[in-house]
Design a protein around this nucleic acid. Structure first.
Lengths: 132, 132, 132, 132
DNA sequence: GTGGTCTAGACCACT
DNA sequence: GTGGTCTAGACCACA
């Protein structure tokens, strides 16, 4: 009864008035959860229905998020069993993370440059950013 | 009718498959053009029709962008003459700019945190970012 | 009013009692339409609503098909404008087609082998297959 | 209890992420095992429990497969003794096999047609297919 | 219990 | 007009 299935310790935090669609927030948190190492291949995700209850949203919305991640090959679903993080080569995950980090960084620096902020100011800004 | 009116040297580069709505890309490029000094108060903007032809997009889309900027007080239309960059107090613009900077920064730091990158690493990353 | 937008000459034929989900039949017909050359980059697909009316199915079902193809990078949607076949390098499409052909062929030969039919019989079977 | 009963040398290879339901993979492997002669009438199948442990799947799944095969008359369970391959008339099996062959062939030809491959090319393709 | 499919309908942003 | 998001709910196959 107490099988060895690993249940990811996911705590989704949604911001409904964010502009970002709910299903996309879920996608992002799963992706980042994997890329940061908090979730790993083979982990089982919360069931669609349980998440729907916890987050107080419609199951279809979660299904949409899970489904998109499955198309991308990040999740694998087994009807009747649950949804799992796909077992792509874990070595590649670190690559994906670095790639993502670099992409986010590049876009950020470009945006700041467009706003007239150079890297010197940038560092000062980050250093003075209120830690939470 | 065709006097020595200054025509801003605007070169819009739109990416329809960008996720960012086209009308917002136009708004952003005008705003950034002003903030960076490429465009200044009194400059005349291209007509909606000419832009629509050049960019091969729907005139309504440009009208929406111009309209939103006029509401913000950034543009001013003079019927029969064209659309001009208003002579709004630059302090207001500076406020908007700082607000934008803070928002971009906050989102960036959150994203990096989700990716498992703390502010210390962040500074190192930015310092080592290849200047272009 | 009579713009030069190319509208793909798509004639979807659905078989509701097929076992294969409707949305997947749509996906397959679009994919095969592209791979066979009947549809090409930049073509505009029927609107979700018009297809829904023609096929007498719910718009959401078509949206699901279009959406999956967009995630895969095969389609590109522009809200307010329509859904288009993405302009990935067309040279790659021929590759994709050959790859697909080889995959289907390989699976077929394996299935037949499992059923105890060798390639000699296979050719005879195909030759005697009633042409439509 | 453990006499010289012949135990079929079944080696199931399941692929959970196959699209094909697990219970159907089991059915198929038993059916193909019989059609190919590896398993024959009277052979005893593994117990549901032992298979469930070996394959690390839910016993219900195996029960469903066995049950469906029993309904088809391919298996016969003897309470307290086990599950056996029935001594059904082989002609019936041959019928089923031909039916399956025809169905697979028909679907294959349709798929290839959708990919723009006609029967002429098809035969050439099969002839040139690398024998393994 | 699990996820998958489909319908129906509301509301929204964008062109 | 276009597609996107989300809800609600029904029914299904699978483990």
């Amino acid at each position: 009864m107490n099988s060895t299935i690993v249940q990811s310790d996911i705590s989704f935090s949604l911001d409904p008035a964010n502009g970002v669609p709910i299903y996309r927030q879920i996608i992002q948190q799963i992706e980042y959860g994997i890329l940061s190492g908090r979730m790993k291949s083979g982990d089982r995700l919360p069931t669609i229905r349980s998440l729907a209850v916890n987050l107080k949203i419609n199951p279809n919305t979660i299904a949409k998020a899970y489904n998109e991640l499955e198309i991308k090959g990040i999740l694998a679903t087994q009807v009747g069993s649950g949804t799992y993080i796909s077992d792509k080569k874990p070595e590649l995950e670190e690559d994906a993370r670095l790639q993502k980090v670099r992409e986010v960084l590049r876009r950020f620096i470009q945006e700041m440059k467009d706003l007239g902020v150079d890297t010197g100011e940038l560092i000062a800004l980050i250093k003075s950013f209120p830690q939470r």
